[in-house]
């Protein structure tokens, strides 16, 4: 995001009161440094994609973070191909064809990753189901102990004129 747009936005948000962009007078005369890359927008795409690709020789780093020669080569490949107009998906396909799914930090959705991608949802359902059962049984207990009949029986018991034991249910601590 360009800096000026961001600042405009921040001003609007009034997050930082009165932060106005003023040209830096002291440094204004100095010549401006050149960006490292000719096309920052492209570089942002390269970096974005590189963060999702795993460097094969490093312990566990993306090709964006690693300084390993292979990571540099692959980053160059990504840049070259994006610059040539290929889409992110095409670049990913290119790398997967050579290095396999291992290069992807986001594994593709397929038979062998079904459990990985659906696992959390399954766990959530299982947890919710378990919770529902637990709560239902608890509520039943609560309802039983608090029911009007129960109270009446308790009063009768206390008065000493209960004819029949109320229930065979074991008391819960």
């Amino acid at each position: 995001m360009p800096a000026d747009r961001f600042l405009r936005a921040l001003r609007g948000a009034a997050f930082i009161g009165g932060c106005l962009l003023v040209a830096a007078a002291f440094a204004a005369d100095a010549p401006t440094a050149k960006p490292l890359v000719a096309d920052p927008a492209l570089e942002a795409r390269v970096l974005d994609l590189s963060h999702k690709l795993r460097c094969l020789v490093c312990q566990n780093q993306s090709i964006a973070e690693s300084h390993a020669p292979l990571a540099v080569d692959l980053r160059d490949q990504v840049r070259e191909q994006l610059a040539a107009g290929r889409s992110e998906n095409e670049v990913v396909d290119y790398l997967v064809a050579r290095y396999g799914d291992f290069v992807l930090y986001a594994p593709p959705f397929k038979a062998t990753t079904l459990l990985l991608w659906l696992g959390p949802a399954a766990l959530l359902l299982a947890g919710a189901g378990w919770l529902a059962i637990r709560l239902r049984s608890r509520e039943r207990e609560a309802a039983v102990t608090l029911s009007e009949a129960e109270h009446r029986r308790a009063r009768e018991l206390l008065a000493g004129n209960a004819a029949v034991p109320p229930s065979s249910k074991e008391p819960r601590s």
């Binding site: 094969l56 020789v57 292979l70 080569d73 692959l74 050579r98």
Partner: peptide, 12 residues
């Protein structure tokens, strides 16, 4: 330049 290496998926 290691380009053919990349085509072969060479990493080490």
């Amino acid at each position: 330049d290691g380009r053919v290496g990349i085509d072969f998926g060479v990493y080490g």
